[in-house]
Design a protein around this nucleic acid. Sequence first.
RNA 1: GGCAGCGUAGCUCAGUUGGUGAGAGCGCCGGAUUCAUAACCCGGAGGUCGGCGGUUCAAGUCCGCCCGCUGCUACCA
Length: 518
Amino acid sequence: MSSKRPFYITTAIAYPNGVPHMGHAYEAIATDCIARFKRLDGYDVRFLTGTDEHGIKMLQTAQKAGLTPRELLARNVPRFQAMVEGFGLSNDDFIRTTEERHKASAQAIWEKMAANGDIYKSTYAGWYSVRDEAYYAEDETTLNSDGVRLGPQGTPVEWVEEDSYFFRLSAYQQKLLDYYAANPGFIMPEARRNEVVSFVSGGLQDLSISRTTFDWGIPVPGDPKHIMYVWVDALTNYITALGYPDTQADLFRTYWPANLHVIGKDIIRFHAVYWPAFLWSAGLAAPDRVFGHGFLFNRGEKMSKSVGNVVDPFDLLAAYGVDPVRYFFLREVSFGQDGSYSHDAIVARMNADLANDLGNLAQRSLSMIAKNLEGVVPTPGALSAEDEAILSLADGMLEKAREAMESQAIHHYLSAVWAVVAEANRYFAAAAPWALRKTDPEKMGTVLWVTAEVIRQIAILAQPVMPTSAAKLLDLLALPEDVRDFAHLGAGHRLASGGTLPAPVGVFPRYVEPEAAG
RNA sequence: GGCAGCGUAGCUCAGUUGGUGAGAGCGCCGGAUUCAUAACCCGGAGGUCGGCGGUUCAAGUCCGCCCGCUGCUACCA
């Protein structure tokens, strides 16, 4: 067991009845950025992602394609795994809910909840929307002009009457409200918390948690005609991956309760209401925080197949490269709010922030070291007020970044780092080392050292967003692998003088439009 | 209908508990420079802070009403 503080972070598990879209990738890179940040900041991080593979929608999609569910999964899940790979995720595990370990886990939590008296059998009759995965009361539905009955979301519903097991969610209303009150950071952003509190305050109905109308799911223990409601199945993935039901094993003891579930704002209720109740019922602790991120829009429009503006995340990778795409989404979008993207916006960020500001700064300063100092890191002389000022700003980045990341304000963390990039450019221009080369070579060396030191700290802090590019930058500074974590930021670990640097190469190329088709 | 939030320069947005002449980035215009990825640096253009009214010595920042937008939720039908 590690002496480091544990940090367990998860994405939601993706529903692979289709191929990955940019929304999946967005959640993945944001969560990965947080995981990497915590790891570099000295935490013992466990990072989980995966796929949610049961449920009637999966079955129906497969049937439409003339496939079995397993065949559909065999076709789609590798795409999600390729996305995880392609976007550079540092996950420790990839869970699939069709795995045997998960079946055992889901059945175990069911039995715990049943043993606690929270599950009872009754009859459910009502209107069910497959698309919404939800039941509606008669008066919540409407008949449209074609005689088709629709649910409140406008999706078709069908009459379902079946035996069902119910979870006594109503018994947890007050406990949930108390938990929200005692843990104001449980649901973030705050606006989401208000919505959940308001919803729970309005009263909770018991939840139907089994189905008998189809069989693509995990059988209810002792009553295999029933399969579990997908959310009981899906949410449990977070503990399955820690070895549940073996709650005494190191993995579970170390990492549960989870520190952070990163999810889309559309599934807040399942994570902030149902999930804690299930856990308490099973005698387990609720997670520390559920963060609901926003949705992405393509040029301000919601992505939809009919509009034809669905963006394939792999296309973005091919067009811009993984690190620029990661940087763009994490910098441009306020984490927790909806965001918009477009080719122009991505290129603007890529060229302005990465190529012009950071990349060019590294290139111009390092190439001066290469050309004038034979690639040897100079020894600084006496530091001027300007030297001290920029170093002090660089030293202050970590605190600001940490503070931002405490509330998952990824965009604030990045803007704090890039504010220093901008200031470093001003510093460099004002110090004009190319002029000092003739008038005051020692001072030129000092300026180049200060600049390289500032770049060192920026690169270390850029690792969570752009792991590959930041590593290249650190390679250019000949920084050993074991001194690239946040413990090596600040005045206590300045860039060593005297070392020889490799020949500088561009790390962040400008994006130039491909030649117009001729 | 209820609850919550939002509406600030062309665009995307910051603006702590009300107090020097309202900001940043991008874009645009002009200048400077040549170490560098035609990049960096400097300067500028420039918005009735959605509208009206109010509180205050002082409001983008508080109160009321109105308009527009978003989310959650309820209900009518």
